[in-house]
Design a protein around this nucleic acid. Structure first.
Length: 226
DNA sequence: TCATTAACGACCC
DNA sequence: GGGTCGTTAATGA
């Protein structure tokens, strides 16, 4: 597959002229990684900017009890990384591939110079960041005020919007999702998630299969409005 | 009252 | 046999 095509699919870069994409391509080597690969820990942190071309990553932290909290799931087209001038908040996180993944990395020096030469890219990055903030806000509200059923539903809506592929009046969430992982994402336990999902199935908001979930986004949003 | 803990059993690669 | 999923009784905030 063409490297330039991948770059043009990355939302933060999609406004860039072709010549800029070609320059990034020259600067940023491409890495292929297998599923289940731990690509960063708080100890092995490296500055730089990373573009996710294909596959999915999970970003998570581990608390003192050894419990895992999944901060975010990134898919193709997402960007992560950290350096002096700005931060995407990934410094102290573990980052692990949950699918076979193609990653493109840009060193700190090359990117900062690239950004200084192209102010319009900085504006684009601010838009990305503010969208991210807004999403975090909504998530925070659910985490603070909702019961587990609402937290789970809100999470599934987000995943459905990001990774959903239409199938009938449902969206299939295109990734392998265990109850344990959902628990890790909303700060709850597997058993509670199982019960909560079962209730949602009874309300016909979602359908479940083994490690897959289908969600009716319209019904789900109606339910969250209440 | 809602969620966690702990435990057991079933199902399926 | 390990990972996933369903259930339930006891306990906690």
């Amino acid at each position: 597959m063409d490297k330039l095509w991948y770059l043009s699919q990355i939302s933060m870069l999609d406004a860039l002229p072709m010549e800029d994409l070609m320059e990034i391509e020259r600067m940023a080597p491409m890495n292929q990684l297998k599923k289940g690969n731990l690509i960063q820990t708080p100890e092995t942190f490296r500055e730089g900017l990373y573009f996710l071309k294909e596959g999915k990553l999970k970003l998570y932290k581990i608390n003192s009890d050894g419990k895992q909290f999944i901060v975010s799931i990134l898919g193709a087209g997402n960007v992560f990384g950290e350096m002096d001038s700005f931060s995407l908040g990934t410094r102290d996180t573990y980052i692990e591939t949950i699918e076979d993944t193609i990653l493109c990395s840009l060193g700190k020096e090359s990117f900062e110079q690239f950004l200084i030469d192209r102010p319009y890219l900085a504006v684009k990055m601010m838009k990305e960041l503010s969208a991210l903030l807004k999403e975090r806000d909504a998530q925070l509200e659910q985490m603070a005020l909702g019961d587990v059923r609402k937290k789970a539903l809100h999470l599934l809506v987000k995943l459905g919007q990001k990774f959903g592929v239409p199938e009938g009046h449902y969206h299939k969430i295109d990734m392998s999702l265990t109850h344990q992982e959902i628990g890790n994402m909303i700060g709850s336990t597997r058993e509670t998630v199982t019960v909560a999902l079962h209730e949602l199935v009874n309300q016909e908001v979602i359908k479940t299969g083994r490690m897959t979930i289908y969600i009716d986004l319209n019904k789900a949003n109606e339910l969250l409005e209440l």
